[in-house]
Design a protein around this nucleic acid. Structure first.
Lengths: 248, 248
DNA sequence: ACGCATTTGTTCGTATGTATT
DNA sequence: TAATACATACGAACAAATGCG
């Protein structure tokens, strides 16, 4: 196979061409050549740049679009996905009213401080125990009902300078903030869900009795290249809301 | 647009061709022209049948494959998806050990009888209150630990003849049984998850104290055409296992 | 063991349609 | 209206995996 511009033996030659193109585009996203919300070059431009046909670029972009890393808009171009748009705003929020319309929560910050990574936090964020970590605690309210208590841990080096003020002044979702203020785009998250009894602060903040069953949702969110950049433990009241999921 | 074999004004003409082809293939699946596990005609055959190019058929099949309705196998053909294969066997089972390897559960049937649809069951299965329904209760054990208690409701007309004997003799998953014995293929399921306290039978069967927090997973499973054909209420112990989910 | 036919997978090229600016 | 960009559709060729004789 003939050598290509960026293809300086960086990608194995035995991969399908469109996969190699996909990797190259992914690298552009990762390195910030194109930023969230911005348009990437047109298909013909990319085809020229990488010396392949438009159809090959198209197939690469198709896959990235199906993974929600890019968004195609007919007549306008292909854009780097962002948590900014209303549709993407609450893409990772699975809590819905048991009955009725979807609602969006109000967020109230309870704590924002620097801490040292515990062994658990260090493990999931791939840090060393004792590394600097930003700790956030917030509560989400649906129609003034306290419903979610989130404890959030972020790598200190990535989120250097994050303060309660920044959080409070920001309009929009947390992942939106990460993206615009810290250039850190969340593309995937794994969750582990268990049922736990309300205890201590939890019960008081969510206004339920001690021992009330609650959902405990441990989330690890990843940016490009499967790099973990958020550990979040969410405690959910599920009397008026429930966690929704579609299997397919 | 010129008229086509099956295209007797059944599908609106303003849809893209490949979408129309997709609808036609879907109809074939729905009507059982090709059964689970079987191969559908090759791309060139389908292209000839529908009088379109191979590329157009390919795009239709691509979408059906991405929805897990078809499975492509290079060199062999394209097959109707089935719950039979090991990989698909436990596709809808989201319960995993908190630590360690994936395990597959043993199933023990506790009840199998005909009942009348309650208002809740009638609503989700789109039946009338009082219609005949098959009720199954079973328990799932991981390494001999009782972990899941499932109450399952099925439309009586579709699952006429389902008995405890059939269930007990069958090797493989429940959806596998539905598919092979009743021609009913599950393609999608919606789940609503809440935390509930163990009560009554639940606590005894799962061997936990009364009031222990458990997951309550309400599932509605659908076959082709978004037709609901199963309502299942699962109660999960989450001390040794957790419900896993990936957001993307 | 080998070659051949079949089937999907990849890649290219071209033309036309549709949405946006 | 014109230019641009993605969307659809067709056709052709070769690669890779499979199965059969």
């Amino acid at each position: 196979m003939k050598t290509r511009e960026d293809g300086v033996a960086a990608t194995p030659a035995f991969l399908p061409l469109y996969q190699q193109i996909k990797t190259l585009v992914l690298r552009g996203l990762q390195e910030g050549e194109w930023r969230p919300g911005q348009a990437i070059p047109s298909e013909v431009d990319l085809a020229a740049r990488y010396r392949v046909s438009q159809g090959t670029v198209r197939k690469a972009i198709d896959e990235l679009a199906s993974e929600h890393l890019l968004v195609r808009r007919q007549g306008k171009g292909t854009f780097v996905a962002t948590h900014d748009e209303p549709r993407m705003q609450y893409r990772f929020l699975r809590l819905m009213p048991v009955e009725g319309e979807v609602e969006y929560p109000e967020s109230r910050l309870l704590a924002c401080r620097r801490v040292r990574a515990s062994s658990e936090v260090a493990r999931v964020l791939e840090l060393k125990v004792g590394d600097g970590v930003v700790f956030l605690r917030r509560i989400l309210l649906f129609k003034d009902d306290p419903t979610v208590l989130d404890d959030i841990y972020l790598p200190g080096t990535v989120f250097r300078g994050l303060t309660g003020e920044i959080f409070n002044e920001y309009k929009g979702s947390l992942y939106n903030l990460f993206e615009t203020e810290f250039g850190m785009r969340m593309i995937r998250a794994d969750e582990k869900i268990r049922a736990v009894p309300a205890a201590g602060d939890m019960a008081r903040l969510l206004q339920v009795d001690q021992g009330t069953p609650l959902l405990c949702v441990d989330r690890v969110a990843y940016t490009y290249g499967d790099r973990p950049v958020e550990f979040r433990r969410g405690i959910y009241r599920t009397d008026r809301h429930c966690y929704r999921n579609t299997l397919s």
